[in-house]
Design a protein around this nucleic acid. Structure first.
Lengths: 220, 220
DNA sequence: ACCTTGTTTTTGATTACTCAAAATACAAGT
DNA sequence: ACTTGTATTTTGAGTAATCAAAAACAAGGT
């Protein structure tokens, strides 16, 4: 059995591989796990010895098939638990991330499948992140763009929030830019770096282009 | 924050104090936690230094008020989680004990109160064990007897199963003597040590008197 | 080629929990 | 009081995960 710590290293590696493919530098794990570099080196060595990671000296790591399968399982637990906390326990979608962080290591496969069933086997979590199925496959994702690249004046729907920090989720919550919201991009001002968009109710929101990149939208 | 290990020591101590009051011998913890005696001695020392237990040398331990409060909290989590697994996730009541054992250390107070609310603040778990409220108080328990001491020929209802081992729960499940079942004790045979009782459907069950002591009943 | 800067690795310690096995204390029985 | 058996404590050691601080390395820029 993989310890909670090992599961966290696996999950962090998978998330990094998904967003920037190629080898995952040690520093990325230092950042994601909040430990000092030396700790990552020794953990990574141990995990490589267990066949969970390949460690290229002074380069970084990449998941082995076994490591990847475990990591996907952890991600599935995390995202199903988040969905459960919001839908069944009526918790606020911006506060469930940390709770799920703890629960993902304690939920057995048996319990997880009951939860998945209860929720009707959802394919995305409350932040719009895809939930892999029990075999580890991610559903084919529809064409989507980040808010700073999508077409202007089209009816769009927010599908995903890439930044899971407390502050950012609270901001998204407050402005109403959360997954499911219908919006339309009015204009971008490259000079000032500001983007203007219109919410369903007609209210207008201005936000920085670098912030807009963290919000993903699809056709409404 | 108390580690899972510390929580388990606290819970085991509380359970022993509840079933046999007075000081809890080290051996009881050895038994309950499945570790060697030396391990218990050193853990107990550390916990006593933290103010969670009082340790009487060569005698055993007893909970301090702080330790008791924490232990009651763990028990509340365990029993609410069990109830949740049975009622909401439709799991078999005889298999939830071990799942709850893992989850009780990962569920935050915030999540726990949502679960309690979802379930309508239940006061007993699927085995009939009382669930303390959020302040740590146990509901006043109605007069109850174990099956080997109760009156004959009275309509009774099973309210609680004291033995939580897999095999025993499976046996209870199979015979139908689970909490909620209506029964009537026909006769006891001290010589053979056998007790005969009748289930709701009219079926008759024979079981040893030492086994009957693990089943608690109340007025139907 | 050399020096600077940033990343990674090594080394030496620490904390929490555990075991094995030896030492000690206690209670009871003769 | 002495012996015996059981419960408890001590001692020494090991594993997993961590940190601090020093050392090694890689890559560029001059």
């Amino acid at each position: 059995m993989a310890s909670s710590t090992v599961e966290n290293y696996l999950k962090a590696t998978l998330l990094h591989e998904q967003k920037a493919d190629g080898i995952v530098p040690m520093g990325a794990l230092v950042e994601a796990l909040g430990v000092v570099p030396g700790t990552v080196t020794s953990m990574v060595k141990a995990m490589a010895a267990q066949g969970l990671l390949e460690h290229e000296a002074r380069q970084g790591v990449r998941l082995t098939p076994i490591g990847r399968a475990l990591a996907v399982g952890v991600l599935r637990k995390h995202r199903l638990v988040e969905t459960f906390l919001v839908r069944t326990l009526k918790m606020d979608w911006s506060e469930v991330h940390d709770e799920a962080e703890a629960l993902e290591h304690a939920v057995s496969d048996r319990v997880l499948e009951r939860i998945s069933e209860l929720l009707g086997h959802p394919t995305t979590d409350p932040h719009g992140d895809p939930i892999p199925d029990a075999e580890g496959n991610f559903a084919a994702t529809k064409t989507q763009d980040s808010l700073d690249l999508c077409a202007l004046d089209q009816p769009l729907r927010v599908t995903r929030i890439l930044d899971q920090t407390q502050e950012f989720l609270a901001y998204v919550q407050e402005t109403g830019l959360k997954p499911g919201a219908k919006i339309r991009v009015l204009r971008r001002e490259p000079a000032s770096g500001v983007l203007h968009c219109e919410l369903a109710g007609g209210t207008e929101v201005a936000l920085g282009l670098h912030i807009a990149g963290k919000i993903i939208v699809g056709a409404a």
